[in-house]
Structure formats: structure tokens, C-alpha cells
Design a protein around this nucleic acid. Structure first.
Lengths: 187, 187
DNA sequence: CGCATTTCTTGATTTTCGTCAAGGCTGAAA
DNA sequence: TTTCAGCCTTGACGAAAATCAAGAAATGCG
């Protein structure tokens, strides 16, 4: 149950065992069915989540009803709706499971308690928060093909677990454009 | 000297006076001449900054030597090179003053001490960190004209203090495109 | 298994924006 | 004052990607 999250935390900040167990005992488990929402629009996100099993899509719906994908997550990754989490205001975005999933939740109040105990947990929090920001595709002004090459080298696992239309949206291009890039590269 | 930062902190988290003075006494003052660098490439950012006077540009230089503007800051705003700050790794980006400027610096070590004392400071830290992430123009998949309208409604002061070429770069478009949008809107 | 729905691909067309080039404006320095 | 450099604007052009449309492939479901 907690094996994966322990490994993840140890990779990031390697806290002493007694500190780590303080964190583990604060975790709560939540099952999310396929297409279920972990965060809905207008809900406030007050936990960070670690994915034990499953896949999630983090997206925004604009006035016209068009969805744009903010991020995609696979098992053993951390996840949060950072804007809502930090501001404690209702989220404008959603996080939805794309398969039956299981997450571990750590509440903001517990995070603060832990950060008070340990500078390592303080750093963990900041690093998780930062990791969530890495929409690196929009930055850097890359061409669609460069974005795809970057995805191939940094997060190839996404291609195994999400439909191409979501991948395309995540990279900020249309499915048609992605399809043409893939054809071109495979030649 | 500390009037503006006190007002800013009170707007954000309103700490008790005795906590606030703990923070104030940790601040250090730094003068930066026009075109001087607050953060250079390969330097590590270990403070957050509050701008007492002046204007700053936060940008990245790619392999080809092209600059892309990450953010623009005016007086009474907070500023940090978040990626370097959180990871404590050398920065790939620069922060440069565009006029003679004065900033107040708060060191990471002091921030952690303060966060331990007070949940309010913990929240302050997270909020500052989040503010720095708001490259909202690249997200949301806006057209250049929508980006400009958004800038007009959210940060019109930037137009008074920075050349249009930097504004254009900040919004991810060429100066020519910005010029045409401005002409069109003024008709 | 067969049907319906969604996803993916492909082609034709249009739009948008970047690039290139030229000229005007402004402010600083000689 | 003149000169120069940097900034901004404008026009012409082209490349790239979006859109539109149709059909193929895959997936889910009764």
C-alpha cells in the first residue's frame, strides 16, 4: 500500500524513518472509478495526492466548453490542483481519472504540521508544488515537432496510457497536427 | 523603507505585529543599477525579493542567443527565480533591472525559520511561489489578441514601464504582431 | 457477434502569424 | 544641431498549423 510513496519520498528528501512514519500515518486512501472526478470545477483542493494505481487528466474547460489539458499523470506520480491548493479558492480546473484508480491523500493541515517538524518536508512540499508547474511545452516556444520529440524523451509512458487527442491537447496542438508529425517521424 | 513590504504582507496574510517584525529584521537591502543583474545565468537563487523601487525583467536565453521573457516586475511586487530557488540548483535564467532599482531580500533559511514559527508565513511563501508561476499567457491557449486583452485587464501598468518588444516577448509573440493588434484595437 | 461510438488518419482549404525589408520616430551623445 | 542607434510601424510574402470534411480503424456495449 505505502511501498511506492515511501520510495518516492526517499528519492526526493530521504527523511529519517521516524519522520517518514509521521507522514505515512497522516495519509488517507481514496478510490476513484474510471471517469470519476478527484477535483471538480468550483471545488477547493486541500490535499496533495500520490497515485498508487491508475491515470489522471488535469484540464480546464473554457467558456466555449473546449477542454485544454494542463497535465497528465500516471501511477507513482504526485498530483495537485496547485492554484486552488495554495489560494484555497475554488478551482477552475478538473482532475479526472481515466481508469479505475487509487490515490493517497495528504491534507494541507498535515503538510504544515510536518513542515514545522522537518525542513525536509518543507522542501518536499515546495518540490512537489514546483513539479506541478512544469508545463514546459508552452514555455520555451517550441515547434509542434520539437514538443513531440521532447515528450518522447521525457515522458514516453504517456503515449502508452492516454489517447492521442489528450496528448495533443497537453502539447497544445490539434490531433491532426500530432497525427501528421507521428507519420512524418515514422517514415 | 519597509512601508511597502509591510503593506504587501498585511494584504496577503496579516500576521500579528510581533511576527511581522521578526520578518522585517531578517530583510536585507540591495541596490541594483540599470541593466544590472539580480540573478545571472549559472547563479543559484537563494532569496525572494520585494521590489522597493524600479523594474525588472526575468528572461531565458536559448542556445541560439534568443531571449524569451518569462515575466516582468514593477515596484511593490515580489520576485524570485523559482526553479533555482526550490531546487537550489544554478539558474538557467536571468533577472535584470531595467532602471536603477532597490530590492529587499529575504533568504531561504530565514523563510524556513519563519514558516516554522507561523503558518501564515508558510502560506505567504507558497503564495509568493505561486504568483511567480503565472505565465498565464502560454497556458489557456489564447490567441495573440486575447493575450493582449488579458494583459490590458490584468497588468496594464506593464505598458507604461516596459518597451513593447519586451511586452511582446512576455506574451509569446513578435513585436510586429503586437503592433498590428494595437493598431487594430485603436481603430 | 454486430452495431454504435469514439478515435485516428488523410486530404483540401483557409487563416494566422512569423519573417524579411524598409522607413519613420525618438532620445542620447558628440 | 547633427548624427546615430534602437524602437516601432507597416507592407509583402511565405510557411505552418488550424479548420473542415470524410473515411478508416479501434473500442465499447448490448
Amino acid at each position: 500500500m505505502f511501498q511506492s510513496i515511501i520510495e518516492s519520498i526517499n528519492r526526493i528528501v530521504s527523511p529519517p524513518a521516524e519522520q517518514l512514519s509521521l507522514l505515512i500515518e497522516r495519509l488517507s486512501i481514496r478510490q476513484v472509478p474510471k471517469d470519476g472526478f478527484l477535483i471538480r470545477e468550483a471545488q477547493t483542493c486541500s490535499s496533495v495526492y500520490f497515485i498508487n494505481q491508475g491515470y489522471f487528466r488535469h484540464f480546464n474547460v473554457n467558456e466555449a466548453g473546449e477542454e485544454s489539458t494542463i497535465d497528465l499523470y500516471v501511477h507513482n506520480e504526485w498530483m495537485l490542483e496547485y492554484k486552488s491548493f495554495v489560494s484555497q479558492q475554488p478551482s477552475q480546473n478538473c482532475i479526472q481519472a481515466t481508469t479505475d484508480s487509487e490515490v493517497l491523500a495528504l491534507h494541507a493541515r498535515d503538510i504544515h504540521d510536518l513542515a514545522r517538524i522537518s525542513e525536509r518536508f518543507f522542501r518536499l512540499m515546495m518540490i512537489l508544488e514546483m513539479g506541478m508547474r512544469s508545463q514546459e511545452f508552452q514555455q520555451n516556444r517550441l515547434t509542434p515537432e520539437e514538443k513531440y520529440q521532447k515528450l518522447l524523451s521525457t515522458r514516453p509512458e504517456l503515449l502508452q496510457h492516454f489517447p492521442l487527442k489528450h496528448i495533443a491537447s497537453y502539447m497544445g496542438m490539434t490531433p491532426e497536427t500530432l497525427s501528421r508529425i507521428r507519420k512524418k517521424i515514422s517514415l
